[in-house]
Amino acid sequence: MGDDAADAAGASGSADSRTGTDATATAFDGGGAFVPYLAVGDPTYEASLEYVEALARGGADLIELGLPFSEPMAEGPTIQGAVTRALEAGMTPDRFFEFVSELDVDVPLVCMTYYNLIYQYGSSDGPRSFVERAAEVGLEGFVVPDLPAEEAGPLREACDEFGLDLIFIVAPTTRGDRLERMMERVSGYVYVQARLGATGAREDVSDQTGESLERLADWEIPKAVGFGIKTGEHAERIAAAGADGIIVGSALVDIVAEGHEDDRPVEETADRLAEKARELKAGATRGAESLPEPEHP
């Protein structure tokens, strides 16, 4: 980031705390980070604990935990299915926080959910209660798909107060002013949306990814690319294109869904998740290794 931009961010008062939690940014050190997503409570609370721990075993560097919302506006059919299963099995914000406390993994955890759940939680008027509770249970930050930078003021403030990160999504359509506004408010990492559309695993990897990474080339913050990544080979290509990490959701949720539909034992599904995680992590690592050594300013 240029000095001017850094000064501008400083003037807006959030610069110091924007570096609040180092854990998320550190997860991307060395590149080739693997960031899986699962909807918490899919298909049950207990199975979901095993699944998230399996991802950590398989090499996850940071995990995005989805707190299911009844209207997942940005999700494709795969994650919608996960959200529905989790809600039917009784997942709530309080159960979610319990889950995070109980989880036995030592990678940073980020909560991905929609703004209404954050806004309604607890007694505060606004997002503060939710963020406070998230900090208590050891979450490091938030991804909120229906909260663009313009509406994120109150959440940004609460994150600053409790030292948590607020991660924004950069879309293929995000340009110019919008990028700058986002740069002022983002912390932890940026989520680079690889293509237009809702989430979902795809067969190909989009050209839009390379373009988006280029637009962000001079941001110092780690860039994680998601939307549609399905195989180790995708992961490799994206890491080789300059992403610091890859985010994978639907391809993992597919494994959970299959296990549920075919009535497989939880351990078997967990093993399959760990195996998929290893494939994706290995791909990301290969991609990162193919890059020239980064120059440090």
Binding site: Y119, D146, P148, T174, G197
Partner: peptide, 27 residues
Amino acid sequence: GERTDRTTADGQFGRYGGQYVPEALMP
């Protein structure tokens, strides 16, 4: 309180309104 730091002048009706959408739709 919850009124946010949007830069556009309108789109707010008292405490209601706004643009809570995925980033891809903002442009």
